[in-house]
Amino acid sequence: MTKKEARQQVKEWMKKLDKNYIEKADQSIFEQVKELKEFQEAKTIFCYASMKNEVDTWQLIASALKQGKNVGVPLCIGKGIMEVRQIHALDDFEEGAYGIMEPSRRCPILSKEKIDMAVIPCVSADREGRRLGHGAGFYDRFLDGVTFPKILVCYKELMMDQVPTEEHDILMDQVICDE
Rank of each mutant, 00 (worst) to 15 (best):
F138T: 00
A89M: 04
E128P: 00
R131D: 03
H168A: 04
D56M: 00
F46R: 02
H168I: 09
W58D: 02
F46A: 13
V119A: 05
I81D: 12
S104Q: 09
P164Q: 10
G78A: 15
M159C: 12
D91H: 13
Q67H: 08
P103F: 13
Q59A: 14
K69G: 05
G72H: 08
G129W: 08
S124D: 10
S104L: 10
R127Y: 05
P164Y: 11
E113C: 00
R105W: 02
E83W: 08
G135Q: 10
A136P: 00
V163A: 08
A118W: 11
P103R: 12
V123G: 01
I109L: 14
G137T: 09
P164T: 04
G129D: 10
L143S: 04
E94D: 10
D161Y: 01
Q67M: 13
N53W: 03
D92K: 12
V163W: 10
A49P: 00
K114P: 00
Q86A: 14
S124I: 11
G99W: 01
E113F: 00
A125I: 05
T147A: 12
L60N: 08
D126K: 10
G72V: 07
S124F: 09
V123K: 04
Y139S: 06
A49F: 13
R105K: 15
E166A: 13
C122I: 01
Q162A: 14
G80K: 03
M51S: 11
P121N: 02
V123I: 14
E54M: 07
R105D: 07
L65H: 10
H134G: 12
I100N: 10
L158E: 06
P164E: 06
G145N: 11
Q86E: 15
Q162M: 09
K69H: 04
A97G: 00
V123Y: 02
W58Q: 11
G68M: 11
P121C: 02
L75A: 13
G137K: 07
I81T: 13
H88N: 13
T57C: 03
T147W: 01
C122Q: 03
C47Q: 00
L152Y: 07
T44G: 04
K66Y: 11
R131Q: 03
Y48F: 15
R130Q: 10
G145H: 01
R85V: 08
I87Y: 11
Y155T: 08
I45L: 14
T147N: 11
M101Y: 14
T165W: 01
D161G: 13
E94A: 08
V84C: 15
I151W: 05
V71Q: 09
S50Q: 05
S111V: 12
Q67K: 14
V55P: 06
V55I: 12
K112P: 01
I100R: 09
A136L: 01
D56Q: 11
I115H: 04
L60K: 08
V84L: 15
D91N: 15
Y98V: 00
L152H: 07
V163S: 06
K112L: 10
A97F: 11
I45W: 06
M160Y: 07
Y48D: 00
G68W: 05
N70K: 14
T147D: 12
I100A: 06
L132H: 07
R130F: 13
D92Q: 12
P103H: 12
D56N: 15
